[in-house]
Design a protein around this nucleic acid. Structure first.
Lengths: 338, 338
DNA sequence: ATGAAAGCGCTAACAT
DNA sequence: ATGTTAGCGCTTTCAT
């Protein structure tokens, strides 16, 4: 039933070493022997055992995908898409990807992810913000790390990032072009590199357009960028400043929350107030009106991270590169002229 | 992290065999020795190598998760959730899950999924409808198969299914209770067991209520249950029958499409026409009005499938069992009195 | 109750 | 150009 390298060797009338070398297309093996071996392999329907290979090569052929559980369970399928991207790309690199989530409250006592404990991965792709303590621990074991959509404080790893500053500018400029002057910004967890950068893009574009940046247009106190927080931030902003004609939310979740608040308060979107988000999650199209946003190519982010990982694994001397994945404006119906 | 069973044996002052037995909590090992070994394990931060274990045990510790690529890429994160469920449950069973998609147009020439070719899995969970030809091929290799949300024609495998008939009844009865008599059904791919069963539930409930089942209330011709097809089906139905006061769509995607058509045509939901879906995808809450639907516990479906798989692998349970996972009515705002 | 030793299937020196 | 052989880290008889 299950043939081994020994069976192949016997059938081909050579040694197992020859079979092994022939399989790896080693130049020391003559073309004729290779053919003989190949014939035996076909006849026996042989396929090398991964376990045995792994044991001797000390490789696993697996890449770990790590993120916090709240990221994976959140309503918007953002990181799920990134995961899919790594998965698709892994196929071509002959890898499998293993998933593990960790709590956001990771502390000293918590164990390392299962796939590092039992040595089941050759490298780890870390998606989104994870506890720095975990990164510290991970950096001590000798596994290649690639970050996607997050910049760890100890910045010495390859990074695959959204071009957030540019995206923030795109969103803001879109609003400016529509004639808006009082453009609010809704952020959450401003220490998060992505949100920080989107905010930078906002400020840069306003400055470039000669528009003064006012404090009461900006909401940065929400602890994380979720719908309810977007709702709350919009309320606080609108309560304090009736001149606002447009809102740029740091992500779609907050934009959706803001839209709910505006509707609840009787504002018409975009006639009274325009709203633009960031991410382009799938729910955007279902909203009424559909949300104008900055599209983040999520699958592409994952694929890119996997490509970098494969590169790192193949040439151990790769410099920690930083890849900025471009974004684009998707204009739908939630933004209009001032 | 680099310590092996040898290091542990040395540190504990015993043989590697003893360490191995102690790890597996074998009764032949004295409690005291076990403690000594455990201490050494902790101090060395030892964790057994999966590759080595796999080699001797002839197991991989991996479960394959198979579905068609269109299922995985569709907008509603339905199968993604099921996948997550298998993943969560796999943790406790000490398994990893490997993902593979196949085309819907799978034919004789196509290769088997990668994880079966290189023998990387101990069993396969098959989610949703997959080509029967593939199932045939898979059934010939000697791997345990578990189906979730699909009934293969060669019905000899463990099945984890949604209680679709009951769900169809729940939805229909809800509408009947609201006083509706002209209740339309929108289906797609009626040969799909799930959709077929939901339709059965619809007919059963109507019969039970003494309501005649009329052809011009039923749309079954759409080839698959997606949004656009829901839109088209609703249009055809409403064009032919102005008496319709409620629509039961076989899934949320079609319900969303139907709602779009109704809105485009100036119908008010639920004042003019009620709409109920099936699945409870995350978009439902964002719709205006939010969609009344039958909730399918997606994560639970996946977890259950993995539990069955683990059972099968442990030989605890050889009989091909069939598990019906219950559903519930989630009443939101898209259904009202007739 | 514990240890010695024989593999599991494969790769890669080292021989020939 | 090909064969011999020593492990990789672990489980599992079989001895002691």
């Amino acid at each position: 039933m299950k043939s081994t390298i020994k069976d192949v060797a016997q059938k081909a009338g050579v040694s197992i070493a020859t079979v092994s070398l022939a399989i790896h297309d080693h130049k020391r093996i003559s073309p004729e022997t290779k053919r003989k071996v190949q014939k035996a392999i076909n006849e026996l329907n042989y396929s090398p055992s991964k376990s045995a290979r792994n044991l001797v090569s000390k490789k696993t052929g697996n890449i770990g995908f790590l993120l916090t559980d709240d990221h994976f369970l959140r309503t918007e399928p953002f990181y799920t898409r990134i995961f899919l991207g790594t998965e698709f790309e892994a196929r071509t690199g002959e890898y499998y990807v293993l998933l593990n989530t960790v709590g956001t409250d990771y502390d000293e006592c918590d164990k390392l992810p299962r796939f590092v404990l039992d040595k089941s991965v050759d490298g780890i792709i870390i998606a989104g913000k994870v506890p720095e303590l975990l990164i510290d621990k991970l950096s001590r074991i000798n596994l290649p790390l690639v970050f996607v959509d997050y910049i760890p404080s100890k910045n010495k790893y390859p990074l695959v990032l959204i071009d957030n500053i540019h995206g923030g500018s795109l969103a803001t400029e879109h609003l400016i072009e529509k004639g808006h002057k009082n453009i609010a910004f809704i952020g959450g967890d401003i220490n998060h590199p992505s949100i920080h950068d989107r905010f930078q893009g906002y400020k840069l574009s306003l400055e470039k357009a000669g528009i003064t940046i006012t404090d009461n247009l900006i909401s940065l106190e929400e602890p994380y960028p979720a719908r309810q927080n977007g709702y709350d931030a919009a309320r606080r902003l609108i309560d304090n400043n009736k001149d606002i004609t447009a809102i740029f939310a740091c992500n779609d979740a907050m934009a959706i929350g803001a839209m709910h608040f505006l509707k609840d308060s009787g504002y018409k979107i975009p006639q009274d107030i325009s709203v633009i988000g960031f991410d382009d999650v799938e729910a955007d199209l279902l909203l009424d009106p559909p949300l104008t946003t900055i599209r983040v190519p999520k699958v592409e982010l994952g694929a890119e991270a996997m490509r970098v990982m494969v590169d790192v694994l193949n040439n151990d001397n790769i410099a920690a590169k930083k890849i900025l994945v471009p974004v684009e404006l998707i204009e739908r119906k939630s933004t209009g002229t001032a």
